[in-house]
């Protein structure tokens, strides 16, 4: 855990963010996990929850990964890792894979983000200063999955807000984010009612502590819970 000088309490580490995000994955869902913290969700599924994992390169129903550095290059996931062959798995080409995404057949995607705006716009493919970025499957997933969960660190470089009024980075998709899980908070983007609802805070963090590190105005809707 890391504590910035003015933080009231430690922030959750990356694994703990993934663990909290995994709690919102519903048994039986078809799920696509992005690279980074999102991919770590697979390690923290609650007991009894079975998901059907999809990866863009054309695989459905994978689970166990081979040991790092080992595995079959013809049995890869979209993050470049090598799963094991398991019963019930299916292979297909990229046309089918993106028909699955674009056609709205993915129940949930968990993605990382550079910025999320108060109305659920997402920026996650390019830092403007770099001038070049990678879209991959992110635009298709963000625009077309039934539910979009963002798992990310709440701030960059100390206290710079990533949950903002308007994204200043190039967009991935407009009005697509449903929920944001960070190292200090769980936030619901209630697009229908134009609200950004603080649902939970990390232990030792108050509503005001989180608001101070968030550009978009937060509201409470009932009690604010604990991420613990």
């Amino acid at each position: 855990m890391t504590t910035l000088s003015n933080d009231p309490a430690p922030r959750l580490d990356r694994a703990a963010i993934a663990k909290r995000a995994a709690r919102d994955l519903v048994d039986g869902s078809t799920v696509n996990l992005g690279i980074g913290i999102p991919a770590m969700c697979a390690d923290f599924l609650p007991d009894g929850v079975e998901l059907l994992y999809h990866a863009e390169n054309g695989i459905l129903g994978f689970k166990e990964l081979s040991a790092p550095g080992e595995g079959d290059p013809n049995l890869m996931d979209a993050g470049g890792k090598f799963p094991k062959l398991v019963p019930g798995m299916a292979f297909f080409d990229s046309v089918e894979s993106f028909s699955l995404i674009r056609g709205g057949h993915i129940d949930v995607t968990v993605l990382g983000a550079l910025q999320v705006s108060r109305n659920g716009d997402l920026s996650n493919w390019m830092i403007p200063k770099r001038g070049i970025g990678s879209i991959g499957g992110a635009m298709d997933l963000a625009a077309n999955a039934k539910k979009v969960i963002i798992a990310m660190e709440h701030n960059v470089r100390g206290d710079l807000a990533k949950i903002v009024d308007e994204c200043t980075f190039p967009l991935t998709a407009r009005a697509c984010v449903d929920e944001v899980i960070t190292d200090i908070a769980v936030i619901e983007i209630d697009r229908k009612n134009d609200r950004v609802i603080l649902r939970e805070t990390a232990p030792g963090w108050s509503f005001d502590d989180v608001q101070a590190r968030t550009e978009a105005r937060l509201v409470a809707d009932g009690d604010v819970g604990s991420m613990a």
Partner: peptide, 26 residues
């Protein structure tokens, strides 16, 4: 990625263009 593969599929399938929701507003 989904637009890229569909553009390639379309070329092979004799479809000059198509509409996709991906990328709107970006």
């Amino acid at each position: 990625q989904g637009t890229l593969i569909e553009r390639i599929r379309a070329a092979g399938a004799g479809i000059p263009a198509f509409y996709t929701p991906t990328g709107v507003g970006t």
